[in-house]
């Protein structure tokens, strides 16, 4: 495992990702991506479908490995992690928020949020406190006993956010978190994530092509055909955050 003492939470150097397409052909999803993400950032990778946003997030989340280049997440080179180390990195340090919420359907909201803490073997009393705290922070303490099927899309995504933040990770990866939500819920969710970013100091990295999300970003990285074509700080976000 490579240790990096750099301040950056995520370091991507010349990342490429190629997928075999059969007949000896490959598809390049990422081409030489070099990026750094610092603690507390509220950044987004934007671009059209097929530009490599999700692939990039998967590599940062150690769900995938680059074909070449180096991806260092919290001091760990994801290419060199064993499956167990990779699982531990995700378990302890990374929270995921998915476009389709990906809640466990047989679990209640409470149990879904509790699940990462069970994996971390957090004691029962501490677990209960943290789960309720997370549910309160997303405004769903009163729906703790509801199953995903009994919740609206916006509520499901809030449960997913609670599940991502409950273990207090340094990094939260959100893949198209508003794609399945209406405008009102999208704003609520983004405001919530912005608030959590401020309160917890966790780094949020989004992949999105939703303008509503882009307006909230403090840093916007634009991908096109697997290449970073623009990496810019945005000013618009400050205004939205202040209004919030």
């Amino acid at each position: 495992m490579t240790e990096s003492r750099n301040d950056a939470l995520v370091i991507l150097e010349e990342i490429t990702k190629r997928y075999p397409m059969g007949l000896g052909q490959t598809l390049s999803a990422l081409r030489g991506v070099t990026l750094r993400f610092m603690p507390g950032e509220f950044a987004g990778v934007v671009g059209p479908s097929g530009s490599g946003k999700t692939t990039l997030l998967n590599i940062i989340g150690s769900l995938d490995t680059p074909s070449s280049g180096r991806a260092v997440v919290m001091g760990r080179d994801v290419s060199r992690l064993t499956p167990r180390q990779s699982a531990e990195l995700r378990n302890r340090h990374i929270g995921f928020i998915f476009q389709t919420f990906n809640l466990l359907p047989v679990y209640t909201a409470y149990e879904n949020v509790e699940f990462p803490l069970l994996l971390l073997h957090v004691p029962a009393a501490e677990r209960r406190r943290r789960v309720m705290e997370a549910l309160e922070s997303v405004g769903l303490a009163d729906r703790a006993d509801s199953r995903p099927a009994q919740l609206s899309g916006g509520q499901c995504q809030r449960v997913a956010i609670a599940r991502a933040i409950v273990k207090k990770p340094e990094l939260i990866l959100a893949d198209e978190p508003t794609a399945n939500l209406d405008a009102e819920n999208s704003h609520l969710i983004l405001q919530l994530m912005k608030k959590l970013n401020r309160e917890t100091g966790a780094t949020f990295i989004f992949s999105t092509h939703d303008d509503k999300v882009i307006r909230y970003l403090e840093r916007k990285i634009t991908l096109e055909d697997g290449r970073v074509i623009k990496d810019e700080a945005t000013t618009q976000a400050q205004g939205l955050a202040d209004s919030f």
Binding site: L63, A87, R90, N91, L120
Partner: peptide, 12 residues
């Protein structure tokens, strides 16, 4: 999808 989620949440 559930299997992927479990792995993403930190299960081996």
């Amino acid at each position: 999808k559930e299997i992927g989620t479990l792995i993403a949440l930190g299960m081996t």
